[in-house]
Design a protein around this nucleic acid. Structure first.
Lengths: 247, 247
DNA sequence: AAGTGGTCTAGACCACTTT
DNA sequence: AAGTGGTCTAGACCACTTA
């Protein structure tokens, strides 16, 4: 099926941008197999016309799919659905959100909430003086009752402070969002190392067993660092998925 | 300094798109500290005017920086440089390219090149029948003489076949690029596990020690899968860096 | 009220691929 | 030659933030 034959509904009253309305419905069509791997979408101008959009808007909708790794475009040829099963992308959400969306019934056990002197590296990343007071969180994330990850986080003292109850109900990112702090970008580094005795105990693995680690600094929409995270994942129960784009 | 005061040179004859010319020079300015963390860029309309560009083009240049996690934008406020040291982004390049750019003097030892029956999972990912013949590569990547990663790759039989010499000189991605195969998108999954005895021997670590793993499927610009990679990295010598964008 | 970025339009010209 | 995506322009109107 060509994209032009799809049932795309456009609501010009909605607050959702047109290009997102279209790209979301195209993405759904790819997911449902209405646009099977290898099929062509049809050219931008025709599609724009068909849906009653300008070419830039239609183009932007398609670009969304390119950025997600769902389709590829080639000048002179056209736009085709990538011949692969779709994978969930890596987005700026918390592990809690991720799990909730995948229906894995995540729960959180708060191990510690306290104010500490910022360790030098954390202070540097948060743009604070060494030894300045920061909020320190330590949580155990579980899915289906099984331990999934040990989460350590540091927040500068100007941020609102969550309590254990909030964290166990909603996750850190949701709390920050609800506090009016919109996290816009994060830099993260993914690696591996052996588990410490404490981590091994908490995750139910052997000491020195492989551990998947993620270190992250997240920034609010005014560019200030808001959170440093240092997480350790059970290697059999978590992986990171990303889509890479060339040229 | 505001971006409007920067020495931005625009060459309208160049084949490089204007928005890339501008974003590259802005990125450089951020890297050099001419636009320090927290500083404002100035509004789009003024900048576009100043550089003699239309607003959409100027906007696209700035969007490039947003996508790289260098700046954040906020409606009603402006565009500010993120308060962080810049990190290299995760791009669709080979490990070989990565190392070469960082000046770490990478070398490659080809351990094996042969044609094998595709393992079921690889066949599925390459869109082949199980047992179909595929090219199988096994390489050891070193940096500064130290083993860095064990690289296993599978390519469908319709792709050109590199020889050991080519792989040791240029890397797999460069070879494919030179063969006219442009890799446009890749889906990858990053995880951790314990090293097998063979991997441990090759990387100079202990059996069952932590290993950083990456599994990848790369697609050409016509959407066909071109390569499956299964890599194991020395955990002390390699990490993955990514930038995440929200909302 | 003034300033900012977010979205959308309706064109234009070009580079590349295929027929 | 025909068809495709890539780039660029010159506007318009809107939503949000700050003063």
């Amino acid at each position: 099926m060509r994209a032009a034959e799809l049932d795309i509904v456009i609501d010009r009253v909605s607050a959702v941008p047109l290009y997102l309305q279209v790209s979301a419905q195209l993405e759904e069509a790819v997911g449902e197999g209405l646009l099977p791997p290898g099929s062509k979408l049809g050219n931008e101008v025709t599609l724009a016309d068909h849906f009653g959009l300008s070419r830039p808007t239609m183009r932007r909708a398609i670009q969304q799919l390119v950025d997600k790794g769902l389709v590829v475009r080639k000048r002179g040829v056209g736009t085709q659905v990538v011949r692969s099963h779709v994978r969930r992308e890596l987005a700026l959400t918390s592990l809690y959100d991720d799990l909730q969306h995948s229906g894995a019934a995540p729960t959180t056990r708060v191990l510690q909430i306290d104010t500490v002197e910022a360790p030098p590296e954390v202070a540097a990343e948060l743009g604070l003086e060494a030894g300045e007071g920061v909020l320190h969180l330590e949580r155990l994330r579980l899915a289906g009752g099984e331990p999934l990850a040990v989460l350590r986080n540091w927040l500068p003292s100007w941020t609102p402070a969550p309590d254990a109850d909030t964290l166990e109900r909603a996750g850190l990112y949701a709390f920050l969002r609800d506090s009016g702090l919109s996290l816009q970008v994060a830099h993260q580094e993914i690696g591996a190392r052996g588990a410490t005795a404490q981590e091994a105990r908490r995750l139910g693995i052997r000491t020195k067993a492989a551990l998947l680690t993620m270190h992250r600094t997240a920034f609010s929409d005014d560019g200030r660092p808001v959170e440093v995270g240092d997480h350790a994942y059970h290697p059999d129960r978590y992986t990171f998925r990303t889509t890479l784009l060339g040229r």
